[in-house]
């Protein structure tokens, strides 16, 4: 496990060695903040000193933004042939997978935390419940890890970044929509109720909700962590095959 850190460092700094990081960070903050102030976010209309109108779009935003950050993880290495270099260095596949994933996750966490001026704005306008703000940030970062695990796996399946991007959106969309009643109603038509119920438990939305209300439910934390562990395990398998 000692070899995770060089891989992590190279990958994390790699975002900043090209314009990718800056385009991504600016794009993400611009879109997320304008959504909160838009008619649909209703930041002012809500009349509440909280960040709910900011974070409510996150599961949707992540659907596009996390695949954009994660599509290159393995596809690029495969396309440029550096995957051969990486896997003939004395590291295990697991170390490489973890190093790269953690770098991507840290980058996403940074993007999320860079929205702190929103929190300052809220504090300036009113008196927010800081507990809720903190749990929401915590939940958003956990959820980003869940999305990224799926995207890293999809990226390991192809050397084409576009295919990786589309597959990632598809897989994340399924995990997102599982939480909606209209979708689960359809599922109930196909499967027994307990299967549909079990499936809807795999949704990002269901598990993110509690965090935005200031609750850290162990079962939500476990959901995101186990989703990451599972996708990273499959990631190792996909690369070793």
């Amino acid at each position: 496990m000692r070899q995770i850190s060089p891989v992590f460092k190279r990958e994390f700094l790699g975002y900043f060695r090209s314009p990718v990081a800056y385009v991504f960070l600016i794009g993400f903050l611009l879109i997320s903040v304008s959504l909160a102030f838009s008619r649909y976010g209703g930041f002012f209309r809500a009349g509440i000193a909280g960040m709910e109108s900011y974070f409510t779009f996150f599961p949707w935003l992540f659907l596009f933004i996390v695949p954009a950050a994660g599509m290159r993880l393995w596809s690029e290495e495969k396309r440029s042939g550096t995957v051969e270099l990486l896997f003939t260095l004395p590291i295990t596949t697991l170390e490489a997978v973890l190093g790269k994933f953690l770098a991507g996750w840290a980058f996403l966490a940074m993007a999320i935390l860079l929205s702190f001026p929103m929190a300052i704005t809220v504090a300036y306008l009113g008196d927010p419940d800081w507990g809720v703000v903190v749990t929401t940030y915590f939940g958003a970062i956990l959820m980003a890890g869940g999305y990224l695990g799926v995207c890293a796996l999809m990226s390991a399946l192809t050397k084409n970044q576009v295919i990786s991007f589309v597959l990632s959106i598809g897989a994340c969309a399924v995990l997102l929509f599982l939480g909606f009643s209209s979708f689960t109603d359809t599922l109930e038509g196909w499967f027994p109720v307990f299967v549909a119920d079990a499936l809807s438990n795999f949704s990002f939305i269901t598990h993110f909700d509690a965090f935005t209300k200031g609750i850290i439910d162990p079962k939500d934390v476990v959901f995101f962590l186990s989703l990451m562990a599972f996708t990273l395990f499959l990631n190792v398998v996909a690369l070793e095959r």
Binding site: G14, R17, S18, S80, G81, T82, E84, L85, T88
Partner: peptide, 16 residues
């Protein structure tokens, strides 16, 4: 892998 030095065909490296 620790004992080997390997130059893959067309010498891949991280371009950036």
């Amino acid at each position: 892998k620790r004992k080997l030095g390997y130059l893959p065909e067309s010498a891949p490296a991280y371009p950036e």
